[in-house]
Computed example of a mutant assay.
Amino acid sequence: MTYIESFQFYLHEYGKGLRTIEEYVAAVLVLERWYIHREGHEFNPDLITARDLHDWVSYMQTIERLAPATINKRVAAIKVYWSFLVQHDYSTLDPTQKVRMKHISPLEQAPRWLTRTKQDKFLHRVEKEKNPWKRARNLAIVQTMLQAGLRTSEVVSLDIKM
């Protein structure tokens, strides 16, 4: 029985759902493939270091451009995997202890921009307004948002006092 098969059995014994087991195993396999591609030799859990895991997280962030939530799910799965390995004497050290989950607050997330096509569609809908006063007002608001990069909440809080 391989480490993966033993890990699946371990997760099943601890009452994890089928979907959770699949995701945990998939995360381990992704790490294994990345490691084999990078190092050029077989994956041996006892040879993995915290630096390797930090490099893997960095790879997921910069090269794969994965969302923080996806990276955190994979890191959590790897932490459970190494707990299993240490508990069953497949590995002597747990390199995941030095790997932290990524804490991303909504304020730290990069703003999302509309593509040029979506901007055009948005402006087209505003221009369809039949009431000329509302059309001019809405167009001014939308253009202000698009050109200045303002969020809806920022436009709402604008004060037009002269």
Rank of each mutant, 00 (worst) to 15 (best):
F9A: 15
H12I: 12
H12R: 15
G17D: 15
L18T: 11
R19T: 12
T20S: 04
E23H: 02
E23S: 04
A26P: 00
A27R: 00
A27N: 01
A27G: 02
V28G: 00
V30Q: 09
V30R: 05
R33V: 05
R33P: 06
I36D: 05
H37A: 14
H41K: 07
F43K: 01
N44A: 09
P45N: 09
D55E: 15
D55K: 09
Y59R: 01
M60Q: 10
Q61N: 06
E64M: 02
E64D: 04
T70C: 00
R74A: 05
A76M: 05
A76V: 04
Y81L: 07
W82P: 00
S83R: 08
L85K: 00
V86N: 02
V86S: 02
Q87I: 01
Y90A: 03
L93P: 04
P95L: 03
P95W: 01
T96V: 10
T96L: 03
V99P: 00
P106S: 08
P106T: 10
L107Q: 15
A110C: 13
P111T: 06
T117S: 09
K118V: 05
K118R: 15
F122W: 11
H124K: 12
H124Y: 15
E127V: 08
E127M: 07
K128D: 14
N131I: 04
P132C: 05
P132G: 00
K134F: 13
R135Y: 05
Q143T: 06
T144V: 08
L146P: 06
L146G: 06
Q147T: 09
G149N: 08
G149L: 06
V156P: 11
S157V: 05
L158D: 03
K161C: 10
